[in-house]
Design a binder for these strands. Structure first.
Length: 217
DNA sequence: AAGTTTCC
DNA sequence: CGAA
């Protein structure tokens, strides 16, 4: 783990604490590749448009989602799962761009998780007011691989909870280019995103986009 | 419940 | 606003 990647040592201590050795925030990690990343997101969403999926309870999610890679996370009345085909088109999800894979692997390695091989990238688009309530990522086949989460656009507050829903979450402000990595003992920690506040980003306008890399299959 | 509403 |  390379400590010079951390801009805010006060907050880093929270994440690298003995209670949470397997979760890291990499500040402004993705900024150098932002042009290529944003172009790739545009290409992906042309082929597999963002959509508001339904929860098993029948509610529409406030976050608009699409995927790239071999496996895509989907939800509908039947439940949460990964699908190799986009339910909306019947076609495979767009392939994961090389710049995505490289970013995810580099971030994972910087956090101490070598040889991460993501086969799923969920792309979440937040408009003001959009949120993600506290949940665990547990639809993956095994939990050996970490999660890599890339923030782009206007700021959000990430909630990082414990292994039980009742554990009070940490509140971690995330801005454009921040990358959160968690795995190992932290792999199943609850997490979420507070309702997005209004804002403007020079490249992304009034929205936030998050890339979440996982090994699903 | 990867959501919503209600209550204090 | 957070908790139920």
């Amino acid at each position: 783990m390379t400590s010079d990647l951390f801009a805010d040592e006060e907050q880093n201590r929270t994440w690298r604490d003995e209670l949470c050795p397997d979760a890291v925030v990499l500040r402004h990690f993705a900024v150098a590749e932002q042009t290529a990343i944003l172009a790739a997101i545009r290409d992906i969403s042309d082929a597999a448009p963002f959509r508001h999926m339904l929860t098993p309870g029948g509610y529409s999610m406030s976050v608009a989602m699409t995927n790239c890679g071999a496996h895509g996370w989907v939800t509908d009345r039947l439940g949460y799962r990964y699908a190799t085909l986009d339910p909306q088109s019947g076609k495979p999800w767009p392939p994961m761009p090389a710049v995505f894979r490289a970013l995810a692997r580099d971030a994972a390695a910087s956090a101490g998780f070598e040889d991460f091989e993501p086969d799923a990238c969920l792309i979440n688009r937040y408009a003001p007011g959009a949120r993600l309530s506290l949940h665990q990522d547990k639809n993956e086949r095994d939990f050996a691989a970490p999660i890599v989460s890339v923030s782009l656009g206007i700021p959000a507050v990430f909630l990082f909870g414990g292994l039980q829903r009742r554990d009070k979450p940490l509140r971690v402000p995330l801005t454009h280019g921040d990358v959160v990595v968690w795995g190992g003992a932290a792999r199943l920690r609850y997490h979420g995103v507070l309702p997005l506040k209004e804002g403007v980003h020079p490249l992304l306008g009034g929205q936030r986009i998050n890339l979440t890399f996982r090994k699903a299959g």
